[in-house]
Structures are given as C-alpha cells and as structure tokens.
C-alpha cells in the first residue's frame, strides 16, 4: 500500500480534501486548489478520506457522484462529521441541479458547483460531463480565503484589472436608468437575445430585491417588503444601492450591494428550492412573491455569489457566461457561492 506523501516544493497555504473518482473533476479541482496555494489530499470515496491535523485542512471538495444513489445531504453529513468545521464545496454531474440544491440546508456547504455539461437533466444515454470550471472555482476560493469584509463588486469575476461601471440607485426611476445602461452595454456587444434576457432578468431582480427587500428599520424589520412594487419608491441617502457591472468578453457580471446585510442562508434556500418544486413558485399580487426574484436570477446566471455581513452590507453578484453559444452557457449550469455571517 502506498503511503500518502504530501511533500511539495511549493509554498502551500494549507491543504484541501478532494473526494471524487471522476478524473476530469480531480484534474480541474486540483488546478483550482493549486491556483490558491492549497495542496490536495485525494480520496476516491468518503470511506477513504484521510484524517488531517487540526487547522491544516482549509476546504473539502465533495463530488456527489461518488455515490449517485446516496442522499446528497447524508454524504455531506458524513464528510462534515469526519472533518468538523471545515467548509465544503459540493459538485455533481448526475442530476446535478436537484442533488446540489438538496445540500443547501447544511450550513457547512458554502459552494455549489455543477460539473460542466451536467446541469440539464438529459436522459442518461446522452449524458456527458467534464469537471467543474477550475477558473471559477479558484476565484470563489480566493474570495473565501481572503475573508474580505467589504463588497467587491464585479471585479473578481472579470479579467484582473478590467474596468467596471458603477451607478448609485436611490429610486425606482434610477433603477430603470441603471437597467437601461446595463442593457446598452449588452446591446453594444451584440449579445444574442437569450443572453441579453438573462442579463436583464438578473440586473432587474437584484435591484428590485435591494430596493424593496433589503431596507430595515432600527429594530431590524423590513420597511419596504410589504409595499406594492408597482408603486415607485425613493430611498434615503443611507439606504441607496450600489450597482457595478462589466463584461470582459467571457463573463458579463452584475453586482448589487445594499447597506443592510439582511440576506441569510434560510431565505436563499427557500428561494432556490422553488426551482425543485415549481408549483410553489407563485408570487402574491404586487409583491415579490417571497424570493421569486432570487430564483429567477439564479436561473439566469452561471454563478450567483451572495456575500453578507449583518448590519453592514449584502452584495449579490450574478455572472453570466457570454462567450460561446446559448447552449454552452446553459450547459454550464448555475454555481452558488455563499459568504455569509462572516464565515468562509
């Protein structure tokens, strides 16, 4: 039996456990971890996970396809009991949407990453997928390890140093203007109708959520949530919302930050679970319909990033893949990255 050797000539910032038996996933995840200076402890199954010394392990990447018939939450539980307190990245290709979203109730799950090509539930004979996008995963982990406590805007998801545009939104009218300027950029880039639609949906819903759902009074009660969204609103100076967006030819990124930090895992989970039970996705007249906007944004985006520090800010960023065809973008699915409660 070979000994697990962890010697490395490179300066590493800790190690990550990677549980997968899918070669493309091993390669892509190892590249992502390598890019952020994390060495890989590989296991072919949850039974083969290796103990790590306290504090050495920074992250666990769990491929749910190690057992496609197992309950995804049970797999996560197995991993989190073995590596207590270590944040988990889940990835999957088999029934990816359903099985990945099923892990959201577990607070250790911070990143949900579909394998490329595994998102749309095609019949098994047509199924073929690669590993998760290593570049996107590296960016997500870099943000997690940097432990930033301020909004980052669109920049992390664009080529380093690429410019972004900023707008302050303080009213319904501002929202319309901001949406128009985002769509002017999309039109100038001659993106296809479906790509433009996804950008429009994500931008509008993120802005609506920030204007109507986010504002809180001193007691923490939502002040605008019950307003009929057909009525225009005007936000006070300290309630205003910041929109930042840009496109580097690969990603079209839209990021919206408010100053409340009220978004939590429970509301994200409730909203996204509607995708698994569409009969429940029925909004009440004039209101947001409890998270329908976030669900639509997630459905439109290839990555949805939620970062919140209670009482300080919530920033939600949607990344739409725009290079290649509509089909290519759809096949990438929707990753979810959570940076909530100041935890990784």
């Amino acid at each position: 039996m070979a000994l697990l050797s962890t010697d490395s000539p490179l300066p590493l910032h800790g190690r990550g456990a990677v549980v997968t038996r899918h070669p493309a996933t091993i390669r892509r995840v190892a590249q992502a971890l390598g890019a952020v200076g994390i060495g890989v402890n590989h296991a072919l199954s949850t039974d083969q996970m290796q103990k790590a010394s306290v504090g050495q392990l920074r992250v666990v990447v769990l491929d749910l396809d190690v057992d496609p018939d197992a309950d995804p939450l049970a797999l996560v539980r197995q991993v989190s009991e073995f590596y207590p307190g270590v944040p988990v990245v889940v990835c999957a290709g088999v029934h990816a949407k359903k099985r990945l979203l099923a892990t959201l109730p577990s607070p250790v799950v911070r990143h949900i990453v579909p394998k490329l090509g595994g998102w749309v539930d095609v019949p098994s004979e047509q199924r073929s997928f690669d590993g998760p996008d290593e570049q996107d995963l590296a960016v997500a982990l870099r943000r997690a390890f940097a432990d930033e406590a301020s909004p980052l805007g669109a920049q992390p998801y664009l080529i380093q140093g690429f410019s972004t545009t900023e707008a302050i939104v303080g009213s319904t009218e501002d929202k319309e203007r901001a949406l128009e300027s985002v769509m002017q950029l999309a039109a100038a880039l001659e993106l296809s109708d479906e790509k433009k639609r996804r950008i429009e949906v994500a931008t509008e819903e993120l802005l609506l959520n920030a204007i109507y759902d986010a504002p809180r009074d001193e007691a923490g009660e939502a002040t605008h949530a019950k307003l009929d969204r057909r009525n225009p609103v005007k936000l006070a100076g300290d309630q205003q919302v910041k929109l930042r967006y840009g496109c580097d030819g690969r990603n079209f990124v839209v990021s919206v930050a408010d100053r409340y930090g009220a978004l939590d895992r429970g509301s994200i989970q409730r909203s996204l679970s509607k995708l698994l039970d569409p009969q429940r996705a029925r909004p009440a007249p004039g209101t947001s319909g409890a998270g329908l906007g976030l669900m639509l944004t997630y459905g439109a985006a290839n990555q949805l990033i939620a970062h919140a520090v209670p009482g300080r800010f919530t920033e939600v960023t949607a990344v739409m893949h725009v290079s290649g065809s509509n089909r290519t973008a759809l096949a990438r699915g929707s990753a979810l990255h959570l940076y909530l409660d100041g935890a990784l």
Binding site: L208, R230, A281, R282, P285, S288, G289, L296
Partner: peptide
Amino acid sequence: VRSISSLGVRALEH
C-alpha cells in the same frame, strides 16, 4: 416578449 420579470410573472398569471 423579450423578458418577464418576477412582477411580470404575477401580472401575466392574473
């Protein structure tokens, strides 16, 4: 119809 917002979903249903 180029797009439907979350509020449009309700309006269309109605």
